[in-house]
Design a binder for these strands. Structure first.
Lengths: 386, 386
DNA sequence: AGACTTTTTTCACTTAATGAAATAAGATGG
DNA sequence: CCATCTTATTTCATTAAGTGAAAAAAGTCT
């Protein structure tokens, strides 16, 4: 429910406005900041000095004078604090310590013997301990811990409503972990976490809406509108992994996104292909595609096209400013991606939005770290679970 | 771009908050209003007396005392002002005069000899004139005119970017009309207008998100998030009419939503069916379905199921609080609707949101009227094109 | 060095909300 | 029927955040 706006919230909103402007545009003088926010110079003076006092902003170099006093650049001090990101996998917790720009400073991995909530919380505690052993430093400079996992997450209460992959049902994982690490903890769906990182410092940085598609262990998506994750009425927005497809007039053929398009599914299809074409010794799909193997190129092309066709439906529905595609399947390269983009261009209602491919290893845990960092740039639910 | 919040905008936001609370909940006492908005009693006293002075609120009957002074109910005075809605059709302009609750007070239709912007503007002027001949009354009590039409509309500038059905391209229809009627004019896509009406006083009244699906002359949709229409980066959100469908593994079969699912397309399929089944004299599809004709029930069932299957993809992506289905095809009744709902239930990822069917004749122009009314409940772009 | 220019800060003022106290209006009970 | 209690609404002094104008700071240019 929307709530009243008093002077306190108004101030917080203006603070967020200025911070996000600096995040998107880099260094700005106080005067530019005033012009771009619409606030008076006087107000900016006060706001900036508060933020400098808190350590989030620093004065940069003065730039060119235009015949008078040089403007003093003000910029975000990304090194001022740390954040920790934890990505839950079925067999391990991947952890990373980053600065406020999600730049990794250290990383570690803790193995999981099982996926019981207590086991996961204990492994997470160990990971945090390894990354910042000094508990004083933790309370001083660590802004919090972000936890990313597959499933439907109630981010406000820090509860995992449903995670099929972990077999969880209403697990208050944020508070379980917060009890152990004594810093604020935020949980979110892993694809949402990736999308937030893209929004803060990635391809969606200067855009207000985005559609994120992940082709990894499963297939999932995330939506950003007005610079905010759209989570849906039951935290299920973007859960396209199980979308059925009636196949035109043939309603009896249902193709499951994850079943055909996930990275494991693609590998499986390659294995089946290799098994049937006798005499050929099995080669890795990625290598085969890179060396131009016709069967591999054909398989990936067909899958890419089909993904593209489904992407068109999503684009036409929400009309995002940009589409960002990531996930482990990106490693299959152009053979998969180009036909996908081609299909989007061919079948879109209008000229489609730009499609950006962005993926690298360890990006999951950086996304998790962005969950905590986002709270600096975003005024809503700035409390986490502590 | 988001902008600063000063005391003026804060006040406007609080005013909006109170108005929307009253719209959703009906009459409330000042005390309840204070409790639900989070504002102090003192602030509510001031706010309410301003709104009463302006004529938008009135005091209602005092309710039951609970042992002390009776609370005085405050409610919206829907009769305080008028709004006019214009729905552009290819051969006519349908117009309705409503109160602030979109309740029709009078209606008229003006024929169009062609769809040139000037012709449309002139016909619209005539319609307004017929509904309120007295120009003094217009400037006093008419809050504005809402114009609904198919196509991509830049609502901020009142420009129709593209309308295939009218052959328009960047037509500043709002200012063309505003010049003639001398009241504020707002234009929007017709499906968006319908959705806004549903949000203000229909099935989405107490919800903050909704997915609206229209099966009419074409097939279109609208999205409401946070009580606001989601228009997309190029005003193209919801334009699913041309969505392609790769049909599972068979990428060569493309079924176009509008081509198979629009009301004319359904009629066409019935006509084809009647033509092939020799000896049978043609019966109207709606009548055939109502009388339980197996072929009609079968045809509508198959179409309904296919629509349902596609709806699942949309629901899984955006996870709306409610789905609202409307459009001229609703007249085909349960034979079409029930299989659609069945399919949604069968193939959804989670328990699907409630699906509400809401349609009646002349609803298009009431939706148009809601475009102007919405500006009272919504603080953004409250200026229109004047 | 003195005259401009441009940026940033200072300060008196305005506005909208707040909490506490006052007032209004009805209920209750002898 | 009057005194007292209860609940609803209004009044008022106070507070917080932003504004515009003027002052101060920090340059450039001749």
């Amino acid at each position: 429910m929307a709530l009243k706006v008093d002077q306190g919230t108004a101030k917080a909103l203006n603070r967020r406005l200025a911070l996000n402007l600096l995040r998107r545009e880099g260094g700005l003088s106080r005067g530019e900041l005033a012009a771009k926010t619409g606030l008076s110079n006087a107000a900016i003076t006060g706001l900036v000095s508060e933020l400098i006092e808190e350590g989030f902003l620093k004065e940069g170099e003065s730039t060119q004078s235009t015949g008078g006093r040089k403007p003093v650049l003000v910029e975000l001090d990304y090194a001022a604090r740390y954040s920790i990101g934890l990505k839950l996998m079925s067999d391990r917790v991947e952890a990373v310590l980053t600065d406020l720009s999600t730049e990794p400073l250290a990383a570690t991995v803790v193995a999981l013997s099982n996926v019981e909530p207590e086991t996961v919380a204990e492994a997470s505690r160990q990971a945090v301990q390894q990354l910042i052993p000094d508990s004083d430093l933790r309370s001083e400079k660590l802004i919090g811990v972000g936890l990313a996992m597959p499933g439907l997450i109630d981010v406000e209460h820090g509860v995992c409503r449903i995670s099929h992959r972990f077999g969880w049902h209403n697990v208050p994982i944020a508070s379980l972990l917060a009890e152990q690490v004594h810093v604020p903890v935020w949980v979110d769906n892993d694809v949402n976490a990736f999308a937030i990182a893209q929004q803060l410092f990635g391809a969606a940085r200067r855009r207000s809406s985005a559609l994120v598609l992940i082709i990894g262990t499963g297939v999932g998506s995330a939506l950003i509108f007005h610079g905010q994750i759209h989570r849906g009425a039951r935290f299920a927005a973007g859960e396209i992994g199980f979308a059925v497809d009636g196949g035109g007039l043939k309603t009896d053929t249902f193709a499951n996104w994850s079943h055909r398009f996930s990275e494991p599914a693609i590998e499986r299809q390659w294995a089946e292909l290799c098994a049937t074409s006798a005499g050929q010794k099995p080669v890795k799909l990625q290598e085969a595609a890179e060396s131009g193997d016709p069967q591999a190129v054909e398989l990936l092309g067909s899958i890419g096209r089909d993904i593209g066709i489904r992407l068109v439906g999503m684009i036409d529905l929400v009309d995002p400013e940009v589409v960002i595609v990531g996930g482990e399947a990106i490693r299959f390269g152009k053979a998969l991606i180009d036909p996908m983009i081609e299909a989007v261009k061919q079948y879109s209602f209008e000229v489609p939005p730009p499609i950006e491919i962005d993926w690298e290893n360890n990006i999951w845990s950086r996304g998790a770290s962005a969950l905590a960092i986002q709270k600096f740039f975003d005024f809503e639910s700035a409390d986490g679970v502590a």
